[in-house]
Amino acid sequence: MTDIRFSGLGGQGVIRCGLISGKALSLYDDKHATMTQSFGPEARGSACSSQLVVSDDRVLYPYIATPSILVSMSQEAYEKYVPELGKGGTLVVDEDLVKLKKVRDDVTVYAVPSTRFAEELGNRIIANLVMLGFFTAVTKIVSPEAMKKALPGLVPERFLDLNIKAFDKGLAHGEKVLKEKK
């Protein structure tokens, strides 16, 4: 069982991150994945998160308590959720948007300039796809093929290629970072 939290600001696509990963795992990677999200009257720009419980068997309890993977795309979200990260957990952040405070020894940190990469590709709105590519590479929880298969229907059709490009950029960066870590 793996508990994952995607967090950031409303408008960054963090709910979409949960949806894409959940769909990829459930439909194309033969896992069970339950996605729940923060749901409220919050507008764009306020803290939001989506949670994913991943399991080989049917997910019974659908909520997360001590996630083993935390993805943060904003400072506020990082500070809010990092204390709950489980022992030996993995923290994935946008390195330009999150300034890390003292990190626990047992936590592995992976950082990617997802928003900057997205801007380089022409649109910061696809930062979440860069993040998802990077997340896929460093956590290995889901296969890149499944993630790409999950995209149609969850991103606008006319921007599908751009989203795949963003995903691949994040994926390549993640693989590079992993190699360097070794």
Binding site: G18, L27, H32, T34, M35, T36, F39, P62
Partner: peptide
């Protein structure tokens, strides 16, 4: 309820 209504699963 809201939880089941907004929960995504296969």
């Amino acid at each position: 309820d809201e939880c089941v209504g907004h929960m995504h699963e296969k």
